[in-house]
C-alpha cells in the first residue's frame, strides 16, 4: 500500500508503529467513486498523492464547503480514543472522511485560537501531522479536534 507518508515526507519504513497504524485497505470499503473523483481531478488518489497534492486536495475540499465535525471536542483520552478508533477503519483514500471525523479546519479554532502550531502531533519542519490515524499534511494555522498539547 502506498501511503502519504511514503510519497510525501518521512518515508519511514523503519518505524514499525507508523507503518502498523496505517489504515488497512481491507478494514472498510473505500467508496470507489470518491477515489475516482480524486483520480479524475488530480491524476492520483489520496493514497498515491505527494505532499503538495494532498495539501491541494485538503484545501480544495474545505474551500468547497466541506463541513467537518469540530464538535464535540474530546473531553478526555477515552473520547479522544473513540475518534481514533473511527479513523483507524478508514483507508488512505478516504480523505474526505478523515477530514470530517477529525473536524479539520483551515484556521485556528475557539476563543483560545487553538491551532496546529502548538499541537503535540504537528511536525513544524515537515508541515505534517504525526498522529498515526491521520498522517496528513498540516499547516501551523490549521486545526482539528484531535488537538493535543
Amino acid at each position: 500500500m502506498t501511503t502519504p507518508a511514503e510519497t510525501g515526507v518521512a518515508a519511514d519504513a523503519q518505524s514499525g508503529g507508523q507503518t502498523g497504524a496505517q489504515p488497512s485497505a481491507g478494514a472498510s470499503v473505500a467508496p470507489a467513486t470518491e477515489a475516482a473523483d480524486f483520480l479524475e481531478k488530480y491524476g492520483v488518489t489520496p493514497a498515491q498523492a505527494d505532499h503538495d497534492t494532498l495539501v491541494r486536495m485538503i484545501t480544495d475540499l474545505l474551500n468547497d464547503g466541506l463541513k467537518t465535525r469540530t464538535e464535540p471536542f474530546p473531553e478526555d483520552n477515552k473520547e479522544f480514543a473513540d475518534i481514533l478508533e473511527e479513523l483507524r477503519g478508514l483507508s488512505a483514500d478516504q480523505l474526505r472522511e478523515k477530514l470530517v471525523i477529525s473536524g479539520w479546519l483551515l484556521k485556528p479554532y475557539g476563543e483560545d485560537e487553538m491551532r496546529c502550531q502548538e499541537c503535540m502531533y504537528f511536525l513544524f519542519h515537515k508541515r505534517w501531522c504525526d498522529l498515526p490515524e491521520l498522517m496528513l499534511p498540516a499547516e501551523p494555522d490549521w486545526w482539528c479536534r484531535l488537538w493535543r498539547i
Binding site: G16, G17, R88
Partner: peptide, 10 residues
C-alpha cells in the same frame, strides 16, 4: 531490524 515491531490493535 528495519521491519515493524508493533501493529496497533483495535
Amino acid at each position: 531490524l528495519n521491519d515493524e515491531w508493533y501493529i496497533k490493535p483495535t
